[in-house]
Structure formats: C-alpha cells, structure tokens
Computed example of a mutant assay.
Amino acid sequence: MTKNWSTENLPDLTGRTAVVTGANSGIGLSAARALAEKGAHVVLAVRDRAKGEAAAATIDGSTEVRALDLADLASVRAFAEGWSGDIDLLINNAGVMLVPQRATADGFEMQLGTNHLGHFALTNLLLPHVTGRVVVVASGAHWRGKIDFDDLNRTKRYSSAGAYAQSKLANLLFVRELRRRLTEVDSPVLVTAAHPGWAATNLQGHTERPLLHAFMAVGNKLFAQHADAGALPTLYAATADLASGDYIGPKGIGEMRGAPALAKRSKAAHDQALATRLWAESERLTGVTFPLNATA
C-alpha cells in the first residue's frame, strides 16, 4: 500500500459512474467530491433532495441527485427501478448512529433497517448494473456487535449502542457473504469494506440525546480527523488494487486516524455460518434475493 495515500493517488475516473448513498454530508460528500474531481459522474443518492442539490452545488464535476430513503424499501425499489446503465462504483455510505428506538417504514429497527437492510436490498436490486465494485462503509463499532436472531429489531431490550454495533457487524457479514456469492457465479464484481476511524461528521449529531451529542461534539473537536481524511479509506476501498472482501481503515493507533491500510475485524465478522444465516434472514425480511446466475 502507498504510504500516506491521499486523493492525489486516485486514478483517472473519466467515463465512470459512481453511486454514493448519503452523499449530502460528511464522508459521503467528501468521497463524492473526490470522485467527481477525478472525472467520475457521481450520483448523490440522498433522502432529502434539497440537501442533496445544495451538496452537489459544492462539487466541481459531473453530478446528479436522486431520491433514496434507505429506511423505506419502497423508496429503495423505486430508486433501483428507475436506474438504467452501468454502475462502476456503488458506495454504500449512508447510515444513522445511536438514535432513540424507532422503526423504519417497514417496521425494522432504524439502525439495522437503514445501515444494513436498506443497503442489502439496494445492492442486490442494482447488482445487475454493477460492473466494477461495491463498497460498504462499516465501523470499528462492529467489534461490540452481536447478531441477535431472536430479537433482531431489539424490541425486548433496546440499547442504541448495541443496535448500532449489530448493524455494523451486519455490514461486514454482508460483505463476506456477497463476496462468496459473487465468486460462486464467477462475477467480475468486487466487494470491499471500509471504516473512517473517528471522523468529524454530522452523523454524531443525530443521536437526539443532548448529553451524548455534547460528548461527541467535544470529541470531534479534540480527537477526530476531518471528514475528508475520514473518506480516504472509502476512496481507497473503491479504487485501489485490492482483493474482494478486503477491509480498509486508518492505519494509526486504534485505527482511529491516518492513511488507509488493511483493517482488522472481529471473530464474528469472519464467521461464514453467521454471514450465511444473516443473508437468509435479510432476504426474508426485505423480499430481495441475490440476482446473479453462474456464467456459462
């Protein structure tokens, strides 16, 4: 890996199309801006079109804004049904973190529904269009995650931190099983994962818990790296010469900040049986299945 890798190391992306979910702010916006500056046509897939348009206006390059609410499977299906043409990069970046207990439009716990199930459905629905790579943005919080199949929606005992960690572990298990399935059908599509370390974004400001919000705000000022730096692992995972399934994060102490490097993942994130079981449950919950068949 290139020492001190930066956006200067990004390849020419002229003629490529990238879809970035949650690209109106934070590392999603930083990634979208960097990809567009290298020539990619970047689709900002966002819940709030007005915010998406405002974000797109700050990007120097080719962009468009499309509505996508990952907490509503009808919106996910509408986005996919409205798509035509190839997708060189699908970057599953959007997410919510440490929010109070609430449900998505389809009755899923909000963090699991948005961070995992929404992207699970979106990826499978768009996969016939993907020609290059799928990138899933996970988190170091996955180390504390546990997939509770008896209560995936955390209705019996809700912890915002526990639900978030479960959703981030689900991200990495999704990558594992998607890689296996793509390999099984001889697909040229790669799937990689990334995490930003501690990056100062507005994600922490959506907790709706004043004390936690204040703590996050202080932490952002004292310890976090800028969103542009936090986006580097995502950009590296999207464009560098990697093996399918690789996981990228900052190389500094505790993987909190620094240039992109291979990241560590928990024992649970390596569990193939767990990944296979979660995939089956995700198919059942979303009604979306893997769309590719083996090549002749």
Rank of each mutant, 00 (worst) to 15 (best):
T2G: 00
T2P: 12
N4I: 00
P11V: 05
L13D: 10
G15F: 02
T17G: 06
T17H: 08
A18F: 15
T21N: 04
N24S: 14
A31V: 04
R33G: 00
R33M: 06
E37M: 12
G39R: 05
H41M: 09
L44G: 09
A45N: 11
D48K: 13
A54D: 13
A55I: 00
S62K: 11
S62R: 13
T63P: 05
E64D: 14
A67V: 12
L73Q: 09
V76N: 08
A78D: 15
G82F: 03
G85R: 13
G85N: 15
I87R: 01
I87V: 14
N93A: 04
L98H: 00
R102V: 04
T104C: 02
L112I: 12
G113S: 00
L117A: 04
G118F: 01
A121M: 05
L122W: 08
T123M: 07
T123D: 09
L126I: 03
L127V: 08
V130P: 02
V134Q: 07
V135W: 11
V137R: 03
S139H: 09
G140L: 10
W143L: 04
W143H: 14
D148W: 04
D150I: 07
D150S: 09
Y158R: 00
S159W: 10
S160W: 15
A161L: 11
A161K: 12
A163T: 05
Q166W: 05
S167L: 12
K168M: 13
A170N: 07
N171Q: 10
N171T: 09
L172N: 13
L172G: 11
L178S: 03
L182I: 05
E184S: 15
S187G: 10
L190C: 03
A194Q: 10
A199N: 07
A200V: 00
P210Q: 12
A217R: 11
A217I: 00
N220W: 01
F223G: 05
D228Q: 00
L232M: 15
T234Y: 02
L235A: 07
A238P: 03
T239F: 00
A240K: 02
D241Q: 09
S244T: 15
G245H: 06
I248C: 06
P250D: 03
G252A: 07
I253M: 15
E255Y: 08
G258C: 12
A261M: 01
L262A: 14
A263H: 10
K264F: 07
K264C: 04
D271P: 06
Q272R: 14
A273L: 13
A275P: 02
T276S: 15
L278R: 08
A280Q: 15
S282Q: 07
E283G: 01
R284W: 04
V288I: 15
